[in-house]
Design a protein around this nucleic acid. Structure first.
Lengths: 187, 187
DNA sequence: GGTGGCATGTAACCGGTTACATGATTAT
DNA sequence: ATAATCATGTAACCGGTTACATGCCACC
């Protein structure tokens, strides 16, 4: 059961459902109306994704048969769903993920608070910091050595990417400070 | 002819071929060894994409039959290909593109120098600046109004996105300065 | 003459996009 | 009643991923 591979959209749905049971329509609106619109908001993506998650036993939908209401199917995470979400969120950070774009990493991070413990979040941020710290100089060196052979717009585009990673490195450090200084609270 | 829709990977290939005729293998290596590895470097994506571009008449491949060489098919842009690349690169910047991630925008920018004139590049950067300038406050307001209802990691993830866009706004302004101060040169 | 890297390809699978279909409920 | 919106769904298409297939050339 639940051996099927889950797409990023699938995990985004799992994460949203973990904080609040919702219908497909609710989820679509969340994607459409919040900064999560980077992800798909089309019914042709969301409804099949929900079906797959249900077939895998990670979520379960119940048709809401309240009196004067439109037919809505409300999904909630199952125990297996919680496990799958935990596993994905807690996966170790790899350099491939950093190089291939931080989107999925950030999505994972966004769901962390309610899913894994504070120490694991800090661990996540620490390794992310390491990866960024080693990746940025690589890009700088590439720009240094190849820049003269590139056209100006290409050089600037690369510079843009580098600055983006540098910004994220600064962000990781701030986030770490936030989590580490949070000595009180917890379970 | 050439009415077929072109994927982002397709345009990336067009752009690379515009500066230097190459074989599929060369292009793969470019993707694999440079910061362009964000794009696909798998043969299963590149070779079919090249075939589609050739069917659409945007590139033409010639098998290099030099003496002691392995069979390589070298592709170059056709006149139609140049037109298609110009059209894509010069498309007006829309807010959807900014919201949906800057990747394609940056790719377009990277190829601009060799494809359109300096004034069009400046125009591109100016409208991009406008879009970013209006988008960042939207995100800030969202964080302001919804932040209290979000968990900490979610709030920080959003903050990360905002900082990224702010960094890009600063970059656009620097890039504009670079292009505008470049009073000499040109054709 | 066989191993290993160069170079091009192909096929199955899968998920997202686009566009359409359906019905129920609310508002006018 | 009829239009608009809520809410869920389906089907065709398309391109990227993964994995495999093929052959050539160089080198030892």
């Amino acid at each position: 059961m639940s051996e099927r591979k889950i797409s990023v959209l699938g995990y985004a749905l799992l994460g949203l459902l973990s904080s609040r049971p919702s219908s497909g329509y609710d989820l679509r609106k969340t994607f459409a109306l919040t900064p999560m619109r980077t992800f798909s908001d089309s019914p042709g993506a969301i409804y099949p994704a929900l079906q797959r998650l249900e077939e895998s036993g990670l979520i379960r939908g119940k048709v809401q048969d309240g009196s004067g209401l439109r037919r809505r199917k409300i999904y909630r995470l199952t125990a297996d769903g919680v496990v799958a979400l935990k596993k994905w969120v807690g996966k170790p950070v790899t350099s491939e993920e950093v190089i291939g774009g931080m989107d999925e990493l950030l999505l994972r991070f966004a769901f962390m608070d309610s899913v894994i413990e504070r120490l694991a979040v800090i661990e996540f941020l620490r390794t992310l910091e390491q990866e960024l710290k080693s990746y940025v100089p690589t890009l700088r060196e590439y720009l240094q050595s190849e820049g003269s052979r590139m056209q100006m717009s290409g050089r600037l585009a690369l510079e843009n990417g580098i600055r983006g990673y540098e910004t994220q490195l600064r962000w990781v450090r701030d986030a770490l400070t936030t989590y580490e200084s949070e000595e009180h609270g917890g379970s």
